[in-house]
Protein backbone atom coordinates (compact mmCIF):
# COMPACT_ATOMS: atom_id res chain seq x y z
CA UNK A 1 0.00 0.00 0.00
CA UNK A 2 0.90 3.59 -0.50
CA UNK A 3 2.84 5.56 2.03
CA UNK A 4 1.73 8.98 3.21
CA UNK A 5 4.64 10.74 1.60
CA UNK A 6 3.88 9.08 -1.68
CA UNK A 7 0.29 10.36 -1.56
CA UNK A 8 1.40 13.88 -0.78
CA UNK A 9 3.81 13.67 -3.68
CA UNK A 10 1.06 12.69 -6.02
CA UNK A 11 -1.08 15.64 -4.99
CA UNK A 12 1.82 17.97 -5.54
CA UNK A 13 2.56 16.39 -8.90
CA UNK A 14 -1.03 16.72 -10.06
CA UNK A 15 -1.37 20.26 -8.81
CA UNK A 16 1.79 21.26 -10.64
CA UNK A 17 0.60 19.48 -13.78
CA UNK A 18 -2.79 21.21 -13.60
CA UNK A 19 -1.16 24.62 -13.21
CA UNK A 20 1.21 23.91 -16.10
CA UNK A 21 -1.70 22.87 -18.27
CA UNK A 22 -3.57 26.05 -17.38
CA UNK A 23 -0.47 28.14 -18.11
CA UNK A 24 -0.02 26.41 -21.45
CA UNK A 25 -3.64 27.00 -22.44
CA UNK A 26 -3.53 30.66 -21.49
CA UNK A 27 -0.21 31.12 -23.26
CA UNK A 28 -1.56 29.60 -26.46
CA UNK A 29 -4.71 31.70 -26.28
CA UNK A 30 -3.06 35.01 -25.36
CA UNK A 31 -0.13 34.76 -27.72
CA UNK A 32 -2.48 34.31 -30.65
CA UNK A 33 -1.04 30.95 -31.64
CA UNK A 34 -4.60 29.89 -32.36
CA UNK A 35 -7.17 32.30 -33.69
CA UNK A 36 -9.78 33.90 -31.48
CA UNK A 37 -12.50 31.70 -32.82
CA UNK A 38 -10.69 28.51 -31.95
CA UNK A 39 -9.79 29.94 -28.56
CA UNK A 40 -13.44 30.53 -27.83
CA UNK A 41 -14.14 26.89 -28.73
CA UNK A 42 -12.31 25.96 -25.55
CA UNK A 43 -15.39 27.04 -23.60
CA UNK A 44 -17.78 24.52 -25.21
CA UNK A 45 -15.03 21.94 -24.83
CA UNK A 46 -14.98 22.74 -21.13
CA UNK A 47 -18.68 22.55 -20.44
CA UNK A 48 -19.02 19.43 -22.55
CA UNK A 49 -16.29 17.79 -20.47
CA UNK A 50 -18.29 18.65 -17.37
CA UNK A 51 -21.47 17.27 -18.92
CA UNK A 52 -19.79 14.07 -20.07
CA UNK A 53 -17.92 13.32 -16.85
CA UNK A 54 -21.01 14.02 -14.78
CA UNK A 55 -23.17 11.77 -16.93
CA UNK A 56 -20.43 9.17 -16.67
CA UNK A 57 -21.02 9.12 -12.94
CA UNK A 58 -24.57 7.86 -13.35
CA UNK A 59 -24.10 5.90 -16.59
CA UNK A 60 -20.60 4.51 -16.18
CA UNK A 61 -20.11 4.21 -12.44
CA UNK A 62 -23.67 3.72 -11.22
CA UNK A 63 -24.57 1.70 -14.31
CA UNK A 64 -27.96 3.28 -14.93
CA UNK A 65 -28.96 4.97 -18.14
CA UNK A 66 -30.52 8.37 -17.58
CA UNK A 67 -31.73 10.03 -20.78
CA UNK A 68 -32.60 13.41 -19.33
CA UNK A 69 -29.20 14.94 -18.68
CA UNK A 70 -30.04 17.95 -20.85
CA UNK A 71 -33.01 18.57 -18.58
CA UNK A 72 -30.71 19.06 -15.59
CA UNK A 73 -28.45 21.22 -17.70
CA UNK A 74 -31.40 23.42 -18.63
CA UNK A 75 -32.44 23.84 -15.00
CA UNK A 76 -28.92 24.97 -14.11
CA UNK A 77 -28.77 27.25 -17.12
CA UNK A 78 -32.07 28.99 -16.46
CA UNK A 79 -31.60 29.24 -12.71
CA UNK A 80 -28.11 30.68 -13.04
CA UNK A 81 -29.08 33.09 -15.81
CA UNK A 82 -32.21 34.33 -14.03
CA UNK A 83 -30.17 34.82 -10.88
CA UNK A 84 -27.38 36.86 -12.43
CA UNK A 85 -29.90 38.93 -14.37
CA UNK A 86 -32.00 39.62 -11.30
CA UNK A 87 -29.35 40.55 -8.75
CA UNK A 88 -27.03 43.48 -8.93
CA UNK A 89 -23.69 42.37 -7.59
CA UNK A 90 -20.17 42.40 -8.96
CA UNK A 91 -19.66 39.69 -11.57
CA UNK A 92 -17.00 38.01 -9.46
CA UNK A 93 -19.62 37.40 -6.77
CA UNK A 94 -22.83 36.81 -8.63
CA UNK A 95 -21.49 34.44 -11.25
CA UNK A 96 -19.93 31.83 -8.93
CA UNK A 97 -22.97 32.18 -6.68
CA UNK A 98 -25.29 31.77 -9.65
CA UNK A 99 -23.43 28.68 -10.84
CA UNK A 100 -23.68 27.18 -7.38
CA UNK A 101 -27.40 27.97 -7.13
CA UNK A 102 -27.95 26.53 -10.60
CA UNK A 103 -26.09 23.37 -9.61
CA UNK A 104 -28.04 23.03 -6.39
CA UNK A 105 -31.35 23.56 -8.21
CA UNK A 106 -30.42 20.83 -10.69
CA UNK A 107 -29.33 18.54 -7.86
CA UNK A 108 -32.64 19.10 -6.07
CA UNK A 109 -34.49 18.18 -9.23
CA UNK A 110 -32.20 15.17 -9.41
CA UNK A 111 -33.40 14.10 -5.98
CA UNK A 112 -37.06 14.75 -6.79
CA UNK A 113 -36.80 12.82 -10.05
CA UNK A 114 -34.37 10.25 -8.77
CA UNK A 115 -36.33 9.12 -5.73
CA UNK A 116 -39.22 7.68 -7.72
CA UNK A 117 -37.34 6.94 -10.94
CA UNK A 118 -34.49 4.98 -9.42
CA UNK A 119 -36.84 2.42 -7.97
CA UNK A 120 -37.13 1.23 -11.54
CA UNK A 121 -34.48 -0.72 -13.32
CA UNK A 122 -32.68 -0.41 -16.65
CA UNK A 123 -34.90 0.45 -19.55
CA UNK A 124 -37.68 1.80 -17.38
CA UNK A 125 -35.29 4.17 -15.71
CA UNK A 126 -34.08 5.35 -19.11
CA UNK A 127 -37.58 6.03 -20.30
CA UNK A 128 -38.78 7.74 -17.13
CA UNK A 129 -35.81 10.12 -17.11
CA UNK A 130 -36.50 10.83 -20.75
CA UNK A 131 -40.07 11.65 -19.75
CA UNK A 132 -38.91 13.96 -16.99
CA UNK A 133 -36.48 15.67 -19.35
CA UNK A 134 -39.31 16.36 -21.79
CA UNK A 135 -41.58 17.60 -19.02
CA UNK A 136 -38.91 20.04 -17.83
CA UNK A 137 -38.64 21.34 -21.37
CA UNK A 138 -42.40 21.74 -21.77
CA UNK A 139 -42.63 23.52 -18.41
CA UNK A 140 -39.87 25.96 -19.33
CA UNK A 141 -41.64 26.55 -22.62
CA UNK A 142 -44.86 27.43 -20.85
CA UNK A 143 -43.56 29.60 -18.03
CA UNK A 144 -43.53 33.38 -18.30
CA UNK A 145 -40.37 34.25 -16.42
CA UNK A 146 -38.29 31.87 -18.57
CA UNK A 147 -39.32 33.77 -21.67
CA UNK A 148 -41.27 30.80 -23.02
CA UNK A 149 -40.49 29.81 -26.57
CA UNK A 150 -38.59 33.07 -27.18
CA UNK A 151 -36.14 32.23 -24.44
CA UNK A 152 -33.94 34.49 -22.37
CA UNK A 153 -31.87 37.20 -23.98
CA UNK A 154 -29.15 39.51 -22.75
CA UNK A 155 -27.54 37.17 -20.25
CA UNK A 156 -24.19 38.70 -19.24
CA UNK A 157 -21.24 37.04 -20.95
CA UNK A 158 -19.38 35.98 -17.83
CA UNK A 159 -18.03 32.65 -18.99
CA UNK A 160 -14.32 32.94 -19.66
CA UNK A 161 -11.66 30.33 -20.28
CA UNK A 162 -10.20 30.52 -16.73
CA UNK A 163 -13.66 30.15 -15.19
CA UNK A 164 -14.42 27.10 -17.33
CA UNK A 165 -11.01 25.63 -16.56
CA UNK A 166 -11.53 25.96 -12.83
CA UNK A 167 -14.99 24.37 -13.09
CA UNK A 168 -13.63 21.47 -15.13
CA UNK A 169 -10.85 20.83 -12.62
CA UNK A 170 -13.29 20.97 -9.70
CA UNK A 171 -15.71 18.60 -11.45
CA UNK A 172 -13.06 16.03 -12.31
CA UNK A 173 -11.48 16.26 -8.89
CA UNK A 174 -14.80 15.92 -7.05
CA UNK A 175 -16.07 12.99 -9.11
CA UNK A 176 -12.71 11.27 -8.91
CA UNK A 177 -12.40 11.62 -5.16
CA UNK A 178 -16.02 10.59 -4.69
CA UNK A 179 -15.47 7.40 -6.66
CA UNK A 180 -12.37 6.51 -4.68
CA UNK A 181 -14.16 6.58 -1.34
CA UNK A 182 -16.58 4.36 0.55
CA UNK A 183 -19.43 6.25 -1.10
CA UNK A 184 -17.94 5.67 -4.51
CA UNK A 185 -17.44 1.98 -3.86
CA UNK A 186 -21.08 1.76 -2.83
CA UNK A 187 -22.03 3.34 -6.17
CA UNK A 188 -19.80 0.90 -8.06
CA UNK A 189 -21.24 -2.06 -6.18
CA UNK A 190 -24.71 -1.13 -7.42
CA UNK A 191 -23.45 -1.27 -11.00
CA UNK A 192 -21.90 -4.66 -10.37
CA UNK A 193 -24.75 -6.42 -8.59
CA UNK A 194 -27.61 -4.63 -6.89
CA UNK A 195 -28.75 -7.56 -4.76
CA UNK A 196 -25.26 -8.35 -3.57
CA UNK A 197 -24.81 -4.67 -2.74
CA UNK A 198 -27.95 -4.68 -0.61
CA UNK A 199 -26.83 -7.92 1.01
CA UNK A 200 -23.52 -6.23 1.85
CA UNK A 201 -25.40 -3.54 3.75
CA UNK A 202 -25.45 -0.85 1.07
CA UNK A 203 -28.64 1.22 0.83
CA UNK A 204 -28.90 1.06 -2.93
CA UNK A 205 -31.73 3.59 -3.16
CA UNK A 206 -29.76 6.14 -1.18
CA UNK A 207 -26.62 5.77 -3.25
CA UNK A 208 -28.49 5.73 -6.53
CA UNK A 209 -30.18 9.02 -5.67
CA UNK A 210 -26.89 10.38 -4.38
CA UNK A 211 -25.00 9.58 -7.57
CA UNK A 212 -27.89 10.77 -9.68
CA UNK A 213 -28.18 14.16 -7.97
CA UNK A 214 -24.40 14.57 -7.83
CA UNK A 215 -24.37 14.08 -11.56
CA UNK A 216 -27.29 16.51 -11.94
CA UNK A 217 -25.40 19.10 -9.87
CA UNK A 218 -22.53 19.24 -12.31
CA UNK A 219 -24.89 19.21 -15.27
CA UNK A 220 -26.46 22.29 -13.69
CA UNK A 221 -23.04 23.98 -13.40
CA UNK A 222 -22.35 23.20 -17.05
CA UNK A 223 -25.73 24.72 -17.88
CA UNK A 224 -24.81 27.93 -16.06
CA UNK A 225 -21.54 28.15 -17.99
CA UNK A 226 -23.40 27.50 -21.21
CA UNK A 227 -25.97 30.24 -20.51
CA UNK A 228 -23.32 32.85 -19.79
CA UNK A 229 -21.32 31.84 -22.83
CA UNK A 230 -24.10 32.07 -25.42
CA UNK A 231 -25.95 34.87 -23.57
CA UNK A 232 -29.23 33.61 -25.02
CA UNK A 233 -31.22 30.58 -23.90
CA UNK A 234 -34.12 28.74 -25.50
CA UNK A 235 -35.87 25.55 -24.43
CA UNK A 236 -35.14 24.02 -27.84
CA UNK A 237 -31.43 23.79 -26.91
CA UNK A 238 -32.15 21.17 -24.26
CA UNK A 239 -34.11 18.49 -26.05
CA UNK A 240 -33.61 14.76 -26.12
CA UNK A 241 -31.00 15.37 -28.88
CA UNK A 242 -28.71 17.15 -26.43
CA UNK A 243 -29.04 14.33 -23.90
CA UNK A 244 -28.07 11.82 -26.56
CA UNK A 245 -25.15 13.98 -27.68
CA UNK A 246 -23.76 13.86 -24.14
CA UNK A 247 -24.40 10.13 -23.98
CA UNK A 248 -22.40 9.63 -27.19
CA UNK A 249 -19.43 11.37 -25.59
CA UNK A 250 -19.58 9.11 -22.55
CA UNK A 251 -20.11 5.89 -24.48
CA UNK A 252 -17.42 6.64 -27.02
CA UNK A 253 -14.89 7.45 -24.31
CA UNK A 254 -15.85 4.40 -22.31
CA UNK A 255 -18.49 3.96 -19.65
CA UNK A 256 -16.65 4.29 -16.38
CA UNK A 257 -13.52 6.03 -17.68
CA UNK A 258 -13.08 9.66 -16.67
CA UNK A 259 -10.27 10.12 -19.11
CA UNK A 260 -12.40 8.63 -21.87
CA UNK A 261 -15.11 11.21 -21.22
CA UNK A 262 -12.60 14.04 -21.24
CA UNK A 263 -10.95 12.94 -24.46
CA UNK A 264 -14.12 12.19 -26.34
CA UNK A 265 -15.93 15.34 -25.16
CA UNK A 266 -12.95 17.34 -26.39
CA UNK A 267 -12.75 15.51 -29.69
CA UNK A 268 -16.46 15.54 -30.43
CA UNK A 269 -16.69 19.26 -29.67
CA UNK A 270 -13.71 20.24 -31.79
CA UNK A 271 -14.07 17.83 -34.72
CA UNK A 272 -17.19 19.36 -36.30
CA UNK A 273 -15.57 22.79 -36.06
CA UNK A 274 -12.32 21.64 -37.55
CA UNK A 275 -13.97 19.92 -40.47
CA UNK A 276 -16.03 22.56 -42.18
CA UNK A 277 -19.04 21.40 -44.15
CA UNK A 278 -19.07 18.39 -41.92
CA UNK A 279 -21.85 19.79 -39.76
CA UNK A 280 -24.55 18.43 -42.05
CA UNK A 281 -23.26 14.94 -41.41
CA UNK A 282 -22.43 15.46 -37.77
CA UNK A 283 -25.46 13.74 -36.30
CA UNK A 284 -25.18 10.90 -38.80
CA UNK A 285 -21.60 10.33 -37.79
CA UNK A 286 -22.60 10.52 -34.11
CA UNK A 287 -25.31 7.93 -34.47
CA UNK A 288 -23.15 5.64 -36.59
CA UNK A 289 -20.36 5.97 -34.04
CA UNK A 290 -22.76 4.99 -31.29
CA UNK A 291 -23.89 1.84 -33.09
CA UNK A 292 -20.43 0.83 -34.29
CA UNK A 293 -18.79 1.38 -30.93
CA UNK A 294 -21.50 -0.66 -29.22
CA UNK A 295 -21.20 -3.55 -31.66
CA UNK A 296 -17.43 -3.73 -31.94
CA UNK A 297 -16.14 -2.20 -28.73
CA UNK A 298 -18.95 -1.89 -26.18
CA UNK A 299 -16.49 -0.74 -23.57
CA UNK A 300 -15.66 2.43 -25.54
CA UNK A 301 -12.23 3.68 -26.55
CA UNK A 302 -10.73 3.56 -23.09
CA UNK A 303 -12.85 0.92 -21.41
CA UNK A 304 -12.63 1.55 -17.71
CA UNK A 305 -9.00 2.56 -17.87
CA UNK A 306 -8.08 5.77 -16.13
CA UNK A 307 -4.95 7.77 -16.56
CA UNK A 308 -2.80 8.40 -13.54
CA UNK A 309 0.09 10.78 -13.86
CA UNK A 310 1.88 9.32 -10.86
CA UNK A 311 1.65 5.75 -12.15
CA UNK A 312 2.67 6.71 -15.66
CA UNK A 313 5.74 8.62 -14.53
CA UNK A 314 6.54 5.73 -12.22
CA UNK A 315 6.38 3.30 -15.11
CA UNK A 316 8.51 5.49 -17.34
CA UNK A 317 11.00 5.83 -14.50
CA UNK A 318 11.09 2.09 -13.93
CA UNK A 319 11.83 1.47 -17.61
CA UNK A 320 14.87 3.69 -17.32
CA UNK A 321 16.00 2.23 -14.05
CA UNK A 322 15.17 -1.32 -15.12
CA UNK A 323 14.05 -2.07 -11.63
CA UNK A 324 11.04 -4.09 -10.68
CA UNK A 325 7.60 -2.75 -11.49
CA UNK A 326 6.25 -0.03 -9.19
CA UNK A 327 3.35 -0.90 -6.95
CA UNK A 328 0.02 -0.83 -8.64
CA UNK A 329 -2.00 0.52 -5.71
CA UNK A 330 -4.63 2.38 -7.66
CA UNK A 331 -6.67 3.59 -4.78
CA UNK A 332 -5.12 6.97 -4.23
CA UNK A 333 -4.40 7.83 -7.81
CA UNK A 334 -5.15 11.22 -9.11
CA UNK A 335 -6.18 11.60 -12.66
CA UNK A 336 -6.91 14.80 -14.40
CA UNK A 337 -6.58 16.10 -17.85
Amino acid sequence: MMTKKNVGGRYLLNTVATCLLFGAIMLVVESGLINRYMAMMLIPVGYNIILATSLNLSAGFLGQLPLGHAGFMSIGAYTCALFTMAVDMPAAVEFPLGLLIGGVAAALCGVIIGLPALRLRGDYLAIITLGFGEIIRVIILNLDFTGGAFGLKGIPKYTTIPVVFVCVVITIFAIHTLIKSRHGRAILSIREDEIAAEASGISTTYYKVLAFSFSAFFAGIAGGLYAHYLSILGPANFGFMKSVEILVMVVLGGLGSMMGSVVSATALTLLPELLRGFSEYRMIVYSLLLVIVMIFKPSGLFGRYDFSLGDSLGKIGSIFRRKKKPEQGGENDESDS
Binding site: R185, L188, S189, E192, D193, I195, A196, A197, A199, R304
Partner: peptide
Amino acid sequence: FQNIRLFRDL
Protein backbone atom coordinates in the same frame (compact mmCIF):
# COMPACT_ATOMS: atom_id res chain seq x y z
CA PHE B 1 -25.42 -16.78 -2.72
CA GLN B 2 -25.90 -20.15 -4.37
CA ASN B 3 -24.91 -18.70 -7.76
CA ILE B 4 -22.02 -16.52 -6.59
CA ARG B 5 -22.77 -12.80 -6.73
CA LEU B 6 -19.48 -10.99 -6.48
CA PHE B 7 -18.70 -7.49 -7.72
CA ARG B 8 -16.84 -9.14 -10.56
CA ASP B 9 -15.13 -6.14 -12.13
CA LEU B 10 -13.92 -4.74 -8.84
